[in-house]
Simulated assay, not measured.
Amino acid sequence: MFSPQGPTLRELAVQALSSVERGYDLLAPKFDLTPFRTPDSILDATAEALSGLGPFGAGLDVCCGTGAGLGVLAKVCDGGITGVDFSAGMLAQARAAHPAASFVRADARALPFAEGFDVAVSFGALGHFLPAERPALFEGIFRALRPGGVFALALGSPPPVTSVAYWAAAGFDLVMRVRNAVWRPPFVMYYRPNQLPEVSADLRAAGFTVRTVPGIVLATKSDQPDRR
């Protein structure tokens, strides 16, 4: 549910009719007061899953938003942590919340890193990438990790077709497709295209070894140097 201090219906409408970048710039000051922020239960589960594989050195939060994932990295990394996002507004909020972290403004489809991190995470961002864009995203994360590095991606199980959640997601995606068909610039945010089999296949194609724990995909870069 939205907090009374969260965005108004008018503010949400303006954001939805903007580009993804501009929409998040506008939403950033109130983002953590909306249901769009990743729940603490998912963040805690990811930290627990990673704790059994670490400790790690440097960590990267891909599409960090206001920085919820940086808190996960702080628990499992004994080196520096970095957030990357293309929204200046979201980065400003993340800097205020995590002053000890480093930040880079960049498009996640063209990450400017090469073997600089031991672990990467991403929360709530996959719906902003069309299926055809996932390979570039995952290949960039693969390059950013050192050999043996781990990428943790929160990806819940799809709700059953008989559930309210299933039809809510289907309705949301339909509304977004209609919106993008008649309005420019587009606002890419779809829930249904990012299912586990397709995501896992794209991760493997990028070079990762993939396994899952409930709600979380753990993709590991080979401990052999990347010679592609």
Rank of each mutant, 00 (worst) to 15 (best):
T66W: 03
T66C: 11
T66Q: 02
A68D: 15
G69V: 08
G69I: 06
G69C: 06
L70W: 12
A74I: 08
K75Q: 15
V76L: 08
G80T: 02
I81L: 11
I81H: 11
T82D: 00
G83I: 01
G83H: 04
G83Y: 03
V84F: 04
D85C: 09
F86S: 03
S87W: 11
A88N: 03
A94S: 13
A94H: 05
R95G: 06
A96F: 01
A97I: 03
A97R: 15
H98R: 12
A100T: 14
S102K: 12
S102P: 00
F103K: 03
V104I: 15
V104Q: 13
R105K: 15
A106Y: 03
R109K: 13
R109D: 03
L111G: 04
A114M: 04
A114R: 14
E115D: 13
G116E: 11
F117H: 01
A120N: 01
V121Q: 08
S122N: 07
F123K: 09
A125R: 06
A132F: 10
A132I: 13
P135G: 14
P135R: 14
P135H: 14
A136G: 01
A136M: 02
L137Y: 12
L137I: 10
F138D: 08
F138K: 07
I141Q: 09
I141R: 06
F142Q: 02
L145C: 09
L145W: 03
L145A: 06
R146Q: 13
P147Y: 08
G148L: 12
G148R: 11
G148Y: 10
G148M: 09
G148N: 12
G149W: 05
G149C: 08
V150S: 07
F151E: 05
A154M: 02
A154G: 03
L155C: 06
L155K: 05
